[in-house]
Design a protein around this nucleic acid. Structure first.
Lengths: 110, 110
DNA sequence: GCAAAGGTTCAAATATTATCGAACCATGGA
DNA sequence: TCCATGGTTCGATAATATTTGAACCTTTGC
């Protein structure tokens, strides 16, 4: 047996706007999504942006994002493979993810 | 004196993505934003979508939306004038508001 | 099987948010 | 000015969310 320890993910059509917005309303979780926007990443707790954060905390953040349908979290060898659910989000809420990821945060004149 | 009882609103450049997403992550607050998308509305507590909700609760919802920079809440005679801050949101986070407001919630095949 | 590496889940303590009655504030009209 | 109308704020309580250590599960390697 190669694949086990699978986690539940909402189907595309079950992804809810409220949950997506809530998941991404936390700066830390948004940072994860942005990190994954560049491409899939391996391991959840070993991401470099927060070496001091306990793994239980990181795992919880992944859970919120996963249950909202923002990211996919699959078993990969001894660790996990994380990825953004771009296609699903785009199909369900066109333009939303890009608008959020592109939100620079810098005013025009600053 | 005609205008008093003004409430604080964040300046355009101070509107934060996290707060906007959080404010709109609640179905009730999102409903208010959608209601106002059609045009400004008078009165906050008398809106028809929730006649049973206590006015303190409605006022709190307005506060969250206002402090996030999503809506404007101005004095208008004896009541208030509520409006969506479309231009400010569009300038700061292009495409975001439309993506959220347009999010129908119906899957393609259903 | 045993031990290590990597993550998730459990459970309890904190912190944040929501709810809503009561008190308070501002406007309009008599 | 006094009263009614409309909303906001205060304060207390309930409901959620976050944080984290400890325990547990799965794969890898011996």
């Amino acid at each position: 047996m190669e694949i086990a320890f699978d986690l539940p993910h909402p189907a595309r059509e079950d992804i809810e706007l409220s949950q997506v917005l809530f998941a991404l309303s936390d700066p830390g979780r948004l940072a994860i999504a942005r990190e994954l926007a560049a491409g899939p990443a391996e391991a959840a707790s070993c991401v470099p942006w927060a070496p001091d954060m306990p793994k239980a905390t990181k795992s919880h953040m992944m859970k919120v994002l996963r249950e909202a349908g923002v990211i996919r979290n699959e078993p990969k060898g001894r660790g996990r493979l994380l990825s953004l659910r771009r296609a699903d989000l785009e199909a369900r809420f066109p333009g939303l993810l890009d608008a959020i990821l592109n939100a620079g945060g810098s005013p025009p004149g600053g």
